[in-house]
């Protein structure tokens, strides 16, 4: 099983992509499965780092939190762009110490932080495990550090070990 399917998640997502592009039919299901299995076997030669998803049931929670946060920050940033005179906005850099070391989890955290219009991921240092972000509307530095560690990092630590 594991020799035929070294990366089952990759094979399944390739199959899903194939079906979305070509439409659902029996022929495409077979062809897409063959391509998914073959391509994930080819990828095995590159030996990408393997990560285990421990708690599947927390993924919808993370997705929901991120969607709501991205929407709220979209509205906040749009308001600040359109009406800049409402309050004095100060932007600045914040250094966040991280606990997370898993590459996949870090990549997901990077996607979350950059997709949220209020925060931008600028630099990460793996030896100090510190992250440098730029915040658009910086009121309180501790608030942002608390938000990232308690809202996203803890969930990611639980999902990916």
């Amino acid at each position: 099983m594991s020799r035929l399917l070294p990366y089952p998640l990759l094979a399944v997502s390739l199959l899903a992509m194939w079906l979305l592009l070509n439409g659902l039919s029996l022929g495409h299901l077979v062809l897409g499965s063959v391509i998914g299995v073959a391509a994930s076997n080819v990828t095995a030669a590159l030996q990408p780092p393997r990560s285990r998803i421990r708690r599947w049931h927390l993924i919808p929670k993370l997705v929901a939190i991120v969607l709501v946060d991205v929407w709220r920050s979209n509205v906040a940033v749009a308001r600040l762009i359109l009406f800049p005179g409402q309050h004095r906005r100060v932007s600045g850099f914040v250094i966040v110490p991280l606990e997370l070391r898993e590459p996949a989890a870090l990549a997901i955290l990077a996607c979350i932080l950059t997709c949220t219009p209020g925060t931008a991921w600028v630099e990460y240092d793996s030896t100090a495990n510190k992250l440098l972000i730029h915040v658009f509307d910086l009121v309180d530095e501790a608030h942002w550090i608390d938000l990232i560690t308690n809202r996203y990092e803890r969930l990611l630590l639980e999902i990916l070990a």
Binding site: V77, S91, C115, P117, A120, H134
Partner: peptide, 19 residues
């Protein structure tokens, strides 16, 4: 166009790319 510094402008394109 409106924002003054580069790091501020870094936040603007993600508006169009997300919602």
């Amino acid at each position: 166009v409106r924002l003054k510094t580069f790091y501020d402008r870094l936040h603007a394109p993600s508006l169009g790319a997300t919602w």
